[in-house]
Design a protein around this nucleic acid. Structure first.
Lengths: 200, 200
DNA sequence: TATCAAATGTACCGATCGGTACAGTATTAT
DNA sequence: ATAATACTGTACCGATCGGTACATTTGATA
């Protein structure tokens, strides 16, 4: 058994709170003071548990990727549903995440990636953000390349550019969600976007 | 004639330099130190000429709106060209601005609007940013509502939602441009987007 | 040439940034 | 009980933030 005084907080709960702050404020905008306050711990506890701001950010980003993005992928492979419907369900599930908060937040990744271009985010964290954003696009591309229905429609030949278009749309909805536009308004955009790559 | 020592710098040149910095770094990310350095002046000159950071930001934002956005509107009203072509030319001219820099910047407005949601930008400046972003969408909506060809196609009945879709696309391309995607890659997205609202 | 307004450069202000030293307190092992 | 260990709280570090006081320099006016 571990010796010494027990931690008074739960690491997972604290990390989730940190993720929320980074989501709202970005990497630079999230101060250690606000982070620790919202995490319910004080600075030495944060530093001893998570290392430093960058390490905390990397953990928070991984948590976002896992709990808010990667877990949605299954919708794309529901074998019995038409491709269009699977894509719409998947994209709308991402939009739902963008709109889920009362304090409008958009997408953690899109939010923080704008800071990458500013040179404000350390290299390792930048890489992680880029990889996760890429993950969605690659996933869409893979479906459009390999799905039977997609091949039948001839979409596999333009899978890359079509996936890119859908990805652009999702980034656009992320910025809109951050400005307070509700899911209901963004649904029409997804519909039009799917039409744009050739559905109907 | 004005009495006293002459200004050693040109206000317009300095303001343009400030706009570039805000464009790259956003409002919070642009420090007074970097701003004054890139403007080629020192802090007291900046404060005596422009007031403070917020006032400088408002002037820089107005300059961006005028010199990078509003001046592009004419392309939409080139009477002899088909609507689709006018829309594409207009949207691509905005994409060109998003991609114009060697240090990739995306869109000043989209960049800074994400900071509005963080509560980092003073009220007056927020309002200005929102208005300018709204300007593009309203412009698209007006064309789709009133243009003869648009009416013939029946687009005027859904002008609002179609304009919103195009606006989302342009915000998406802005975030892509900021990540280094070139204009050539984004052109296909504009084409698909126009297809999505009913062209072809 | 003397005067005076305006711009400049330096040096500083308090507040906040990310990060840490250290004393105090709780917990387990001996 | 006592020692060893790990977490907590306070108080601080140097660096940077936006902003300013002030002495100096410049140049037009009188």
């Amino acid at each position: 058994m571990a010796v010494g005084r027990k931690k008074i907080f739960n690491e997972e709960v604290a990390l989730k709170a940190a993720m929320e702050v980074f989501w709202e404020k970005g990497y630079i905008g999230a101060s250690i003071a606000e982070l620790t306050q919202r995490m319910g711990i004080n600075k030495p506890s944060m530093y001893s548990t998570f290392g430093n701001k960058e390490a905390l950010f990397i953990l928070a980003s991984k948590l976002y990727a896992k709990s808010k993005i990667e877990c949605l992928s299954a919708a794309l492979n529901q074998a019995d549903l038409p491709l269009k419907q699977r894509l719409k369900t998947y994209m709308m599930s991402i939009v739902a995440v963008q709109c889920e908060s009362e304090t409008t937040k958009g997408c953690y990744l899109v939010q923080c990636q704008t800071e990458v271009a500013s040179g404000d985010i350390p290299a390792e964290a930048s890489q992680l953000l880029n990889n996760t954003v890429d993950y969605v696009q690659k996933l869409l591309e893979a479906i459009l390349s390999n799905d039977q229905e997609s091949k039948r429609l001839g979409f596999d030949k333009e899978a890359k550019v079509k996936a890119f278009c859908l990805s652009v749309t999702l980034r656009g909805t992320a910025t809109m969600a951050r400005c307070g536009h509700p899911k209901s308004e963004l649904e029409a955009v997804i519909d039009h976007s799917l039409r744009g790559i050739g559905f109907e």
